[in-house]
Design a protein around this nucleic acid. Structure first.
Lengths: 210, 210
DNA sequence: CCCCGCCTCCCCCATATTCGGGATTTGACC
DNA sequence: GGTCAAATCCCGAATATGGGGGAGGCGGGG
């Protein structure tokens, strides 16, 4: 049993597509499809039994969908590399998959041969993505970081608040009096248009203020 | 003036590397290097004057570094595609670049020819990344989502808190009494090992609890 | 049947926070 | 020299929060 055999599971509800993917993948030397399934039911149990190296997974499947599939597989065998293969460019589904632990994300509109490359990629620690997906992922980081015209000191105070500091702790951290802290926070709340600390923290973290 | 000319700026503090990159890029049909610089000083002004389509940027440069460079360029001309080209695999610098708006991220250890591909990629809406980088980016989404053994109701209450709701608002949102909310929050704070709402919100957001 | 976890509510009280008014000093800028 | 924003401080009152108890009902598992 050579170490270079790649054990693959296939989850895709379209039967004919699933069969052709299976044939395509098995044509590649060293790639063995240990199972193909129309949805992600029992994915956890299957993973435990078959110990795959890679899973190729659609998202939209009747029964258990791809997101549940990722969770099941990662629970059973966290080092399994999971490649999503779907028509969706929907941002919510994309990020749900990434948060669940997907290791790659290909759109079906690209050549099926891309899957073969992708399986090689994930085996070597890469993260294959369709260009549109890569772009969406990078853009998700790019938030303009609204400043709300906070003065430097106000930003500093807000940062401490975000770290969970109380007014008193902020005062000693900044070496200023409690009254000053209260004064700053008043202004900060007004500028952020919130009316309590928790809201300010939530807003600051969501919008990458400071 | 054919529309297919790509105007490129180059920021790299190593003089010989900068020169060879320039030659390499200009050897590609349609690619014109409008300027090369040893750091990102005056990047905003330069961008405004030269109106580049693409910038290739190192991170570690004396004077103004690559992160400031991204900000300057994106301020002056937001649709400029910025490709980072650096030795760093350092996570902090990586994410700082992405947050600032980088559109691609290549490691210098890969073939310089990858840059040519990357410039084509960004022009077509892609987001070229070295495999290691792509993996780090995807992994940044994959947080196990610690649950801290919160009960369903507790999770719900915490979610409202994260949205900035006050105790009273949570009470009416959940159709329970203020006392009940206080009771839940007591338990939640204990389970999260925090001692106030702001800290709980910060922790919940950071660790994707709920 | 009994126990236990969950949901719900209650009381009390100390403190923290919010928000409404000020005020002073400093340093930059015109 | 005048103006203005920023940083610093103070007072006081109304609420909100945090932490300590306890307690009843309900459903599931042993």
């Amino acid at each position: 049993m050579p170490a270079l055999i790649v054990k693959i599971l296939l989850f895709e509800d379209n039967n004919s597509l699933r069969q052709s993917l299976r044939q395509l993948i098995e044509a590649e030397p060293g790639f063995v499809v240990f199972g193909d399934f129309p949805n992600a039911e029992n994915a956890e149990e299957l993973t435990r039994q078959l110990q795959p190296n890679v899973a190729v997974m659609d998202i939209d499947m009747p029964g258990a969908d791809g997101i549940e599939g990722i969770q099941a597989i990662k629970t059973a065998k966290p080092d399994t590399q999971i490649i999503m293969h779907t028509v969706f460019e929907d941002a919510d589904k994309l990020f749900a998959c990434l948060c669940a632990g997907a290791n790659g994300y290909l759109l079906k509109k690209h050549s099926p041969l891309r899957i073969i490359e992708a399986i090689h990629d994930v085996q070597q620690g890469g993260a294959p993505m369709s260009p549109e997906i890569a772009r969406m992922v990078l853009q998700s980081f790019h938030q303009p970081a609204r400043s709300y015209d906070l003065t430097p000191r106000e930003k500093e105070v807000l940062q401490w608040l975000v770290k969970g500091y109380s007014y008193k702790m902020i005062a000693s951290a900044c070496n200023i009096s409690l009254e000053t802290v209260k004064s700053y926070l008043k202004n900060i709340y007004a500028k952020l248009q919130v009316n309590c600390g928790t809201e300010a923290v939530a807003k600051a973290m969501r919008e990458k203020v400071v």
